[in-house]
């Protein structure tokens, strides 16, 4: 009799405990979802567009199948249209061309000669579109390739969209040396509250370009050059007034690595809006653009930004 009372009470207890366990008053934050809610990471290459020419299908691929303003990794696959099998191709070049409303033709920072990836049989390169398709003009892609000693050239119009992931933001500006520069963020696509490897491409408009209409592709491929041995000083801060110009420790300025890109480290101490304040230095250490920002903690005041900055959000 008493044993049963005891068992009943124990059961009652366990039930209470279970109810309590299952019902925290406020739910814990799902951290993985927390980050995912702002940044959608494109992980898969999909076809953006394709052109059929002389029995070959030229397929242009990008992440999510979309080209964005800013940095884009691009793959080109060339197949036999009938058999749908990869063809022995060489000398694949890729050139984006923007035709402005005034009819002027321009290009953007771009890898002209694509490299071949034999494992997956595609050609790989990148492009930094400097504007979206629209009022400034549309974009076309010119792809050249050689099959069996024969040269082929195709042109196809593409749509360049606004980049919604602020972590892949870019900026264009004129430096103190009167040169025109492009800085485009490449990585991290999806930052963490952590140490993040920060990678950016820095490019300069090639002014020596002579703009003779003949052989424009030969000219336009040099319209931007990767800048060499520059440095990009970094000071990340949260601009929100309530954050009082909050910054993070252990950041590293971006310097050029063997891949030509600029690598540094940015620490984000919490999710939200951040501003990457930059100072661009040329190889002589001269400031090309950018200003030091106040380092004080000033609650209630919106953080002042460098004249060279990129806003990010995650």
């Amino acid at each position: 009799m008493k044993v049963s009372v005891l068992i009943k009470t124990i059961v009652f207890y366990v039930a209470i405990t279970c109810v309590f366990l299952g019902s925290c008053t406020k739910g814990k934050t799902n951290y993985e979802a927390e980050r995912g809610s702002v940044v959608e990471e494109g992980v898969e290459f999909k076809e953006v567009t394709n052109v059929v020419n002389a029995g070959y299908t030229i397929s242009i691929e990008a992440l999510n199948g979309v080209l964005y303003r800013g940095y884009n990794d691009i793959r080109v696959r060339i197949k036999n249209t009938q058999t749908n099998t990869p063809v022995e191709v060489s000398g694949v070049t890729f050139l984006p061309i923007q035709t402005t409303v005034t009819g002027e033709k321009r290009s953007c920072p771009n890898q002209y000669n694509f490299s071949y990836k034999s494992d997956d049989k595609y050609f790989s390169g990148y492009t930094v579109f400097t504007s979206e398709s629209g009022s400034e003009g549309g974009w076309e892609i010119n792809v050249n390739f050689t099959v069996g000693g024969q040269n082929f050239s195709v042109i196809k119009e593409v749509l360049v969209r606004q980049q919604t992931n602020k972590n892949l933001n870019m900026t264009m500006f004129t430096g103190k040396d009167d040169e025109q520069y492009v800085i485009a963020l490449i990585s991290p696509k999806k930052p963490n509250v952590a140490e993040n490897k920060l990678v950016a491409g820095i490019y300069k408009l090639n002014r020596q370009l002579d703009s003779s209409p003949k052989g424009f592709a030969d000219q336009l491929q040099f319209s931007y050059l990767q800048v060499e041995r520059y440095a990009l000083k970094l000071d990340p801060r949260m601009p929100e007034p309530s954050m009082g110009n909050h910054s993070s420790p252990n950041n590293k300025d971006l310097i050029q690595d063997t891949d030509g890109l600029y690598h540094g480290v940015v620490n984000y101490t919490m999710t939200g809006n951040w501003t990457l304040n930059f100072i661009l230095l040329n190889p002589d250490g001269k400031v090309i653009r950018g200003t030091e920002v106040p380092k004080d903690f000033t609650p209630g005041v919106e953080g002042r930004k460098s004249e060279l900055y990129l806003d990010i959000l995650f």
Partner: peptide, 20 residues
């Protein structure tokens, strides 16, 4: 042990700021 902090910007429509 788990502890979270979430800060709200003055403009509540903006993204909140989160850290553990």
């Amino acid at each position: 042990s788990i502890a979270e902090m979430r800060m709200y910007p003055q403009d509540r429509s903006k993204q909140t700021m989160f850290a553990y």
